[in-house]
Amino acid sequence: MTDVSAERRSDDDTAAPILVERAADRVVVTLNRPEKRNAIDQAMVDALHEVCAELEVEPRTLIITGAGSTFAAGADIAQLRERRAADALAGINANCFIRINELPMPVIAAIDGYALGGGAELTYAADLRLATPALKIGNPETGLGIIAAAGASWRLKEIVGEALALELLLTGRVLNADEALAARLVNAVHAAKDLLAEAHALADRIAANDRDATIAMKRVVRAPRAEHPRVDLEAQAELFESPEKVRRMTEFLERRSKR
């Protein structure tokens, strides 16, 4: 596992809305409002935008987790209560999560405990989701007189299918870990003590591959169906000219010849 602890951000841990740890091939973001069960507020959104700006320039895998035993229990309700139509149209959380989703390299959500409302929508923006047996994930927004408008209406049905997405969004039903795993809403469930290590192990597997190929793979998977196979072939054409492709394939052939 890559050691990220040495490059931890120097901000006051008790005040920073997120904690950021950096390594050459990954960045770990910890949502850091444990006293509010990591409720997503404006300061946290602003800090996440700063991380996105960094990773758009220097692509690395992003791991997102939460301080304490909660990922994020939702958006900050006190702030939401004061927001009006103009705030909704500004897409404060939605645009942040879109930016996270569109990062060049993979995003891994390591989810312990509650991931509700905006917290759930943040996990939906990730490419891969790992959870603990304590997971409780869902979107109870309609019970608060609003809708899940930060990505759930389109991402959730892409992940679990429209029928289940509609059930969850219309009823507010919360899934536990076994239900989320069965629905493939999460990729795997691990003990809480192992969660971050397993997220790093996943990041290690990604880091072992060619970064340019990984970026291209994520981009073409996300491309609209009408753009295939053109986008695949254009990406492959670029990679076929890469010295890294030649190096990796040469090493593969040499290893095979020695068997």
Rank of each mutant, 00 (worst) to 15 (best):
A15F: 03
Y124R: 02
T70K: 00
L62F: 10
L144Y: 08
L128E: 10
R222D: 05
K36R: 03
S5T: 14
A88T: 03
G161L: 07
D87K: 03
R26L: 06
T142R: 02
A149R: 10
L103P: 12
M44E: 03
G66V: 00
E21A: 04
N38H: 14
A199H: 15
D25T: 08
D12F: 06
V220C: 11
W154N: 07
M105E: 07
T65V: 09
A237G: 04
A150I: 11
R184H: 11
R60D: 09
D194E: 14
T65E: 12
L122M: 09
V221R: 11
T171N: 02
V186R: 14
T142H: 01
L181N: 07
A126L: 05
G151K: 11
I64D: 00
G113Y: 07
C52Q: 00
A23G: 11
Y114W: 05
A201T: 09
G66H: 03
A235K: 01
I146T: 12
E21T: 04
S257G: 00
D178I: 04
L103Q: 06
V174I: 15
T30M: 10
D41T: 09
L164F: 01
D3A: 11
N38K: 14
Y114G: 01
A237P: 02
R230K: 14
R155L: 13
E158S: 09
I215P: 11
I146R: 14
R8G: 10
D12S: 01
R219N: 10
A24K: 06
E158C: 08
S5A: 15
